[in-house]
Amino acid sequence: MGSSPELILNLGLMAMLIVVAFAVVRMRSLFAIVMLQGVYSLLSAAWFVSLDAVDVAFTEAAVGAGISTVLMLGAMLLTDRNAKPISVRQKMGPFLIVVVAGLAMFYAIGDMPAYGDAMSPANAYIGAEYIEATKREIFLPNVVTAVLASYRGFDTFGETVVIFMAGLGIMLLLGLDGKAGQWRAKPNGRNICTSSPPARKMASALEAPVATKKRTVKKATKKPKSKTAGTKS
């Protein structure tokens, strides 16, 4: 951990992380919880910087504090404001799992290599080879980029495809205009999407040649009024 100012900084960051974690658990305002999760990510990013893991810190700050917060904000606006109360007996199971997992982690601390240990598995074998070879073969100061894009280019290709698949899945399921599927969430009693889903439109279009004109017209006029329409299809 080195000098004492750094130690104080690390301890301070860890203490703040714990405080924020407890605040997230105890708080009841969803907006504040989402914001605190962003704060948690930013604090861990600061902690990663003090551990000299700048690239990880960068990603944590951009993804954890940036994008995730926004997406959680979106999810928050779509969820209900009230939840069913959970009895103490129902909480015992998860609590037991948390305690056991926590104790197992404390037990494992003894086997962890010391911080910055040159002989630790992460630093010793292939890691040392990459650091040594990057200077000679890639001529880049940032070893992380060399490993990510060149030595492990195959893996990164896979990661890029995974992100592509995630975006593609979201597009196929939800569409970019937010009108795909039936959408009936009503936070604070406000209707979010009143337009009819494409699936229903398609179903009525398929029905149309057989059915009489009257029926389809009747259906169309009914749609915007009835709030529960479309659950059966």
Binding site: L71, G167, I170
Partner: peptide, 17 residues
């Protein structure tokens, strides 16, 4: 890919809000 995928996810959810 990353820029567009992130925006796709945001547009998909953001359009519903």
């Amino acid at each position: 890919t990353v820029t567009c995928a992130m925006l796709a996810i945001f547009y998909a959810f953001g359009s519903r809000i």
